[in-house]
Design a protein around this nucleic acid. Structure first.
Lengths: 190, 190
DNA sequence: TAAAAGCGTTGACCTGAATCAACTTCATTT
DNA sequence: AAATGAAGTTGATTCAGGTCAACGCTTTTA
C-alpha cells in the first residue's frame, strides 16, 4: 500500500506509534501523476510537499532565453516541492513534472504545520531529511565550481548510475549545467 | 552575554522555557577564535556544530591545483560546521577559519543528540534552520548554472551588500566560483 | 503508416572567463 | 621606517565549453 512506502521511509529515521501513524496518514492526500503532467507550475504557489512513492519527477526552471535548468530529480522514496514557495506562500520559481507515471502523497503547508505540532517527532524526521539534503546540495555546489565538464559527468555516472540509465542524456546535461552537445562529446572519454 | 545572542536567535523560530534554556545552555562550549585561526581543518573529523555569536568565518575547500573554493561565509547569528563530517564522524572536506576575531558557541555531535532528545523543540529549530539553508543553497546552485559572471557578481552585491563591504574581493570571487581577475574587471560595468 | 517530435551525434565556429604575469597600493610586522 | 605580504588592477593570450545547424534514429501521435 502506498502509505506503507511512506512509513517505511519515515521509520528509517524515526519511530512512530500506531496512533501517530494514523495521524500522519490522515494528513496525506494520495495522487497519481501521469508522465509529462505537471505537479507544480512556475509562478503559482506550491501548495504541497510531496512524497514520491513510485515514479520519477523533475524540478526545473526556465531562464529568460527559454533554456531549461533542472535542479532536481525526485525518484521514489524522496520528497519534492519548491520549499520557499511552499513554506512562505510565494510564487514558485520552479516547475515540477513527471518523467514517469508516478504515485504521490501530498500534504499542504497548513497540515504540515498541524502534523508537526501533533506529532513532534516529525520535526525530527524532517530535520534529518533536510540535514542530509543540505549536505548533498552543498556538494553539488562545490562540484559545480571545481570540476570540469568531464569530471562532472563522470562523477554523476559513479554516484548515480541508476539515474543515468533512467533519464535521457539531454536532461542529465541540464542537471549538470552543461549542454546536450557537450555531454554527448565527452561521453567518449568516460 | 554570549548565550543571550544564541537564545535571541533560537527564539526567532521557537519558544523555550527557562528550564529548557538552562539545558540547552549547558551543552554549549564558548570559545573565541582569532582572525586567521582554524576552527576545522580538512581531513579531520568536524567535532562541533558552531554558532557564531560575533565575527565572521569562512568555509573552504582546496582543490588538487591548490586553489581555494569558498563554500560559505558565516557571520554572527549563523551556524557553521561540515555537516557531513559532524553527523557521520568522517574526515572533513572543508577547512573553516576566522576572517575576523570571533566568539563562538560549540556543541559536539553526541551532545547535540542528547540535547534534541531532552529538548525536542530543538529538532524543530534545526528543521526550520536547515529548511531555510536548503532554499538558499538551492538558489546558489541555480545561479551558478544560469548566470554569467557579471550577473553573479551583481546579484551578490544586491543580495549581500553587507558581505561585499566586509570581505576582500578575491574571497568574494572564490565564493562565486570566479577568479579575482575576472571580478576586478567586471566591477567596472556594475 | 505517415508525420511529428524527441533524442543523440557530429562539425564549424565563437566567446566568456581562465591563466599567467607584471605592477601598484595598502596594511601589518619588526 | 623598512620590509613583507595581502589585495587589487590590467594586459596578452589561451581554451573549455557554448552556440548553431545539419543529420539520423527511434518513439509517439494522429
Amino acid at each position: 500500500m502506498i502509505y506503507d512506502i511512506l512509513f517505511k521511509h519515515l521509520e528509517q529515521k524515526i519511530q512512530l506509534s500506531e496512533v501517530e501513524k494514523e495521524i500522519v496518514k490522515s494528513y496525506f492526500i494520495p495522487k497519481t501523476l501521469k508522465k509529462r503532467k505537471l505537479l507544480l507550475q512556475e509562478g503559482y504557489v506550491c501548495k504541497y510537499l510531496t512524497f514520491v512513492a513510485s515514479g520519477l519527477l523533475k524540478t526545473y526552471h526556465i531562464d529568460e532565453k527559454g533554456k531549461e535548468h533542472i535542479s532536481q530529480f525526485t525518484p521514489e522514496g524522496w520528497w519534492t516541492s519548491d520549499m520557499h514557495s511552499f513554506f512562505h506562500s510565494v510564487p514558485s520559481q520552479y516547475t515540477i513534472d513527471a518523467l514517469e507515471d508516478s504515485e504521490l502523497l501530498m500534504i499542504t503547508a497548513e497540515d504540515f504545520e498541524n502534523m508537526t505540532l501533533q506529532v513532534p517527532v516529525m520535526d525530527r524526521y524532517f530535520r534529518l531529511l533536510f540535514q542530509n539534503s543540505l549536505v548533498v546540495k552543498e556538494r553539488r555546489l562545490v562540484t559545480a565550481h571545481t570540476l570540469t565538464a568531464e569530471e562532472k559527468y563522470r562523477q554523476l555516472v559513479e554516484n548515480n548510475p541508476g539515474l543515468v540509465n533512467r533519464v535521457p542524456q539531454n536532461l542529465l546535461a541540464s542537471y549538470l549545467g552543461l549542454t546536450a552537445a557537450t555531454v554527448s562529446r565527452l561521453k567518449k572519454n568516460v
